[in-house]
Simulated scan of single mutants.
Amino acid sequence: MSKTSVQIVEKVSKKKKLETSKNHLYCLTHTYDNEPRKYWVSAPYTLDTFDVIVAFIQYECSEIEESFGMDQEDVIKVLERFYGCKELETPDRISYYEVDLYENWEMFCGTADQIQSIELLKREGLNEVLAEFVEVFYQSKPEWRPKNECSTV
């Protein structure tokens, strides 16, 4: 029997430490890639914890700009900088877990508030880095930048 997203979030929120002593191999994909791309990541987290970390990163970014969808490269940069993960060019073993960013977002969307309240997931400077991704997005799509709604009279 597979666990629900609520059960997974509850389990992760009760942890005293996120990391494990063993690194696991993950393949990041995205349902809506124009052409399928696989990005390999070595991470010191169980699958449940890794899924919740990825969801946390995506939801934090969505708080800054909800129309911006992070891709695998963005998520990996955050994982490497803040969560002790390492991108691999090619997998170093046969056994791995696939994490689709779209499916992960959808799976945990009903628990976003709970995920965002888990203290062990928070990292100083994370929101500033996410804001940089959003700024690059705005530069490529200036029509998406919010207009200043305040007017001076």
Rank of each mutant, 00 (worst) to 15 (best):
E19Y: 04
Y45W: 07
C27D: 07
L25N: 08
P44F: 03
S13L: 12
H24M: 09
K15G: 06
K22D: 12
V41E: 05
S21N: 07
D48A: 03
W40H: 04
N23I: 03
S21G: 04
V41Y: 00
P36V: 02
L47W: 06
K14L: 15
D48M: 04
T31V: 08
S42I: 02
C27Y: 03
D48F: 07
D33R: 12
T29S: 15
E19C: 04
W40A: 05
Y32S: 13
L28S: 01
P36M: 01
K22I: 11
H30L: 08
S13A: 15
K38R: 13
W40S: 01
Y45I: 01
L25D: 02
Y39P: 01
S13H: 13
T29K: 09
R37D: 12
N23Q: 10
N23E: 10
K14T: 10
Y32E: 13
L18E: 08
E35G: 01
L47P: 06
L28T: 02
T31H: 11
C27N: 14
Y39L: 14
K22A: 10
N34Q: 13
E35Y: 07
T29Q: 08
K22P: 04
P36A: 10
H30C: 13
N23C: 09
N34C: 08
K16A: 10
L47G: 01
S42P: 10
K16L: 12
P36E: 12
E19R: 11
S13E: 14
N23Y: 12
D33S: 14
